[in-house]
Simulated assay, not measured.
Amino acid sequence: MTTLLISDLHLQPATPELTDGFLSWLADRAPGAEALYILGDFFEAWIGDDLLDLGAGDPTGTAELASRVAAALKTLAEAGTAIYLMHGNRDFLLGERFATAAGARLLPDPSVVTLGDRPVLLMHGDSLCTRDEAYMAFRRQARDPRWQTQVLGMPIAERLQLARQLRDQSGEANSNKAEDIMDVTPDEVVEALRAHGVETLIHGHTHRPAVHDVDLDGTTARRYVLGDWQPDKGWEIVIEDGAEPRLQAFPLS
């Protein structure tokens, strides 16, 4: 059986070719897979599941895009593929309503799952970037249920404005940060593997696709980093019949 893992699509109305490419991948590549794991930042921004009520009346176009994507995922799920969604730092307000519409289950970050014949730690990856102190402070706020309840209680127009402000602030802040600060902290990776008793970690977030060997208490563990999708290229990890995970890029058309 085949398991597929993807991350960091950042779907948004401004990149329709990327959405079309993902839907084509979903229709051509995913059918027959035992499971599909989407490890966060599926959408560029998500202001709450009630956005779906706007339909074509959503001025941003996100509601219509999300409905198309949810319908395609639902078709895959009804054909027998288990679909799991993990929150990212862009779409941490994704809720049960969208998951149900997509035939998916929300997966906590972090989660240990059995893939093939091994336990694997799945994460979005942002919690590993502990050297970015400003972002970690925002992450604590954004994952606070009280803060989320307060935001979801705001009118949709105000939430849309807040999402734009957060994106602008993030882009400006990141442009002034050293590259290594925005990458994972090596000691945090080791601690995560040790705490969960596993030797394999898969995550996204950093947009730095690679496979890393990790010294874990005298044994060699492995960290797989998914890449972010572009209009012309996607990234996936494939696990087939207990084989080693395979990270690969592929063209989108």
Rank of each mutant, 00 (worst) to 15 (best):
W46D: 05
H196R: 13
Y84T: 07
D109R: 03
L247C: 10
G227E: 03
P119F: 00
L152I: 06
G153K: 06
T149W: 02
Y135T: 03
Q148H: 03
L252R: 07
R90T: 02
L166D: 01
S111Q: 09
G61S: 07
G204F: 02
F92H: 10
A210P: 00
G242T: 11
S24V: 03
A72V: 03
S24R: 12
R90G: 01
G61Y: 01
D20C: 04
R222M: 13
P251E: 15
A243D: 15
I6S: 06
K233D: 04
V214D: 04
T2P: 15
A63Y: 00
E78T: 09
G48D: 03
D144K: 12
L54F: 08
E133R: 15
Y135E: 03
A195H: 14
F22C: 06
D58S: 12
L122G: 03
I181H: 03
L201M: 13
V238A: 11
P155C: 04
L152T: 06
F138G: 09
D144A: 11
G125I: 05
G32N: 08
G125P: 01
I38P: 00
T60Y: 01
E191Y: 08
A101D: 09
E244N: 14
Q148R: 13
Q161C: 03
L11V: 10
G234Q: 07
D41C: 07
G234D: 09
L216R: 11
D144G: 11
Q169H: 13
T114M: 11
S175P: 04
N174G: 06
H10F: 01
T206C: 04
E172H: 15
D132G: 05
H124F: 10
L85E: 02
P108L: 05
E44L: 12
A192T: 08
A142E: 01
D132E: 10
R131P: 00
T60A: 10
A77V: 04
R167D: 11
E44W: 05
G57V: 02
L26A: 01
V198D: 04
S7L: 06
F138L: 15
L162D: 02
A72H: 01
L193E: 06
T75Q: 14
G95Y: 04
A72Q: 06
Q12C: 14
S170E: 06
A99D: 03
H124R: 10
A27T: 14
H212K: 07
I156V: 14
L107V: 10
Y135D: 04
H87C: 07
P119V: 01
L52M: 13
G95H: 07
A210M: 09
H124C: 08
A221F: 12
R131D: 15
R97V: 15
T130P: 08
F250N: 10
Q141S: 12
G61P: 05
G234N: 06
A243K: 12
P108T: 05
V190K: 15
R194F: 03
A243S: 13
D109V: 02
V214L: 02
L9T: 12
A157I: 06
W235E: 04
H212P: 07
P245G: 13
L128K: 05
A99R: 01
Q248H: 12
H196K: 08
M154I: 00
D49R: 09
A163V: 02
H205D: 15
A71G: 08
P231C: 13
D241H: 12
L5N: 00
A102L: 04
H196E: 12
A221S: 11
P110W: 07
S67P: 00
G88R: 01
F92Y: 12
A178I: 10
A195L: 14
G95N: 08
D28M: 07
